[in-house]
């Protein structure tokens, strides 16, 4: 819950609600971009960016190295599978 999970923004789903489609370990789901979106900037700017996602909300834009390192730690902590399962469940 407190570690979050890195994902890559694939597309923008809803500009008004600031929702993007984020790919996390091959699973795609809607994620709120409201905490990372800068005012006055188009959301499309974030496509292909990596973000750290906490319970469905992107909380920080990160670089790819950071994303890969975090994914490795999550896998070793055994949290990767758990998060992905929860995500899949929530998306259904």
């Amino acid at each position: 819950m407190c570690l979050g999970i890195p994902g890559k923004i694939v597309s923008i789903v809803d500009v008004e609600q600031q929702l993007g489609l984020v790919d996390v370990g091959g699973i795609q789901r809607e994620v709120s971009l409201s905490c990372v979106a800068e005012e006055g900037q188009p959301l499309e700017k974030y496509i292909d960016e990596w973000v750290l996602v906490h319970v469905g909300f992107a909380m920080s834009v990160i670089d790819e190295n950071e994303a890969q390192a975090t994914l490795a730690v999550l896998t070793e902590l055994g949290e990767m599978q758990q998060e992905l399962q929860a995500m899949q469940q929530g998306a259904s």
Partner: peptide
Amino acid sequence: GLGFETTMPSTALTVLQ
């Protein structure tokens, strides 16, 4: 709703929505 300030914004934003 559970958690410290890490998850608090997600709950707050959901209530706002």
